[in-house]
C-alpha cells in the first residue's frame, strides 16, 4: 500500500512540475513547495550529519583531547547573530573565518593550477614533423592568445581618420580570431547543453513514468484539469 502511494506520488510530482511549461497551476505550485520544504529540510539534516562526524562525535568520544572543537562550533553559531538588529556584526566573525580559509586554499594553489599550468599548456612547438599536430598546435596557441586578448587584456586602439593603421588592423584581426574561437566554444557548449537537458528529461521518463503508465496517466488527467481551471480563472480575471 505504502509502496503504491510512493510510486504514484513520485510520478505525479514529476508530471505536475513539468506542467509548468504549459501553464502555471495549483498542482505545479504544490509540487514546487514540496520541493522547497523537502530540499531545505534535507540540507539541514545532511549538514547536521557532517557536523556530527567532524565535530560532535570526536567531542563526545574524547572530550579532553578534542575540547578545542568547541571553538569552531561557537564560531559557527555566531552566524545566527545576523538576525539581530543590534549585534548583527558578531556574525562577521563566523563568515570571515569560513571565507578566509576557503579563499586561502584557492589563493595559494590558483597561481599554479589556474595560471602557470594553463600557460604551460600553450607553450607548444609550432613546427613539428606531423602536419596535423602542427595545425592543432597553431590553433591552440592562436585561439588562446586572441581569446585572452578579447577577455582579459582588452585594449582599444585609437581609430584614426582615413586609412586604418597597421596596429589597428592587427588588433582587429586578433579580436576577430578571438570571437571565432569563442563561437566554437559556445557552439560546443550549446550542443552539449541540449544533450544534458534531454538526458535529464529522458531519464526522468525512464525512472518515474514509463514503468508506471497508470500512475502517470492519472497524474496527467489531474494536471490537465488544473490547467483548464487556471485558464478559466485567467480568462475570468
Amino acid at each position: 500500500m505504502i509502496e503504491a502511494i510512493q510510486i504514484w506520488l513520485s510520478a505525479a510530482l514529476v508530471i505536475w512540475i513539468w506542467s509548468f511549461v504549459y501553464k502555471d497551476n495549483y498542482l505545479y505550485r504544490l509540487a514546487q513547495h514540496i520541493f522547497l520544504g523537502a530540499a531545505a529540510g534535507y540540507s539541514i539534516g545532511i549538514s547536521l550529519d557532517s557536523l556530527n562526524k567532524t565535530a560532535l562525535v570526536p567531542l563526545a568520544k574524547s572530550p579532553t583531547t578534542n575540547m578545542h572543537l568547541i571553538i569552531p562550533i561557537i564560531i559557527g553559531l555566531l552566524f545566527f547573530f545576523k538576525y539581530s538588529r543590534r549585534y548583527y556584526w558578531v556574525a562577521r566573525y563566523g563568515v570571515g573565518i569560513a571565507l578566509a580559509v576557503g579563499t586561502a586554499l584557492a589563493f595559494r594553489t590558483a597561481p599554479m593550477a589556474n595560471i602557470i599550468r594553463q600557460v604551460n599548456a600553450v607553450l607548444l612547438p609550432l613546427w613539428t614533423p606531423d602536419p596535423v599536430k602542427t595545425l592543432n598546435n597553431w590553433i591552440h596557441v592562436v585561439i588562446t592568445l586572441s581569446a585572452l586578448v578579447y577577455f582579459i587584456f582588452t585594449v582599444t586602439p585609437r581609430v584614426v581618420e582615413g586609412r586604418p593603421t597597421i596596429t589597428y588592423r592587427l588588433y582587429d584581426a586578433v579580436l576577430r580570431i578571438g570571437i571565432y574561437g569563442m563561437m566554437v566554444a559556445f557552439g560546443a557548449t550549446l550542443a552539449n547543453t541540449i544533450m544534458t537537458r534531454l538526458a535529464f528529461f529522458i531519464s526522468m521518463n525512464l525512472q518515474y513514468l514509463q514503468p508506471y503508465p497508470l500512475e502517470s496517466l492519472s497524474a496527467i488527467i489531474l494536471v490537465a484539469i488544473a490547467i483548464l481551471f487556471a485558464m478559466r480563472r485567467a480568462r475570468a480575471g
Partner: peptide
Amino acid sequence: RQWFTPYKTPLILGILGVMGPAAEPFVAAG
C-alpha cells in the same frame, strides 16, 4: 587545486554534458 596541484593525484572527471567544454582546459594542461 587541492588534489592534483599539491599531491599530483591523477583525476578523471565524470561530468554533465553542459560542463564538458569548460572542463577541457584541465585535460589539455595535463
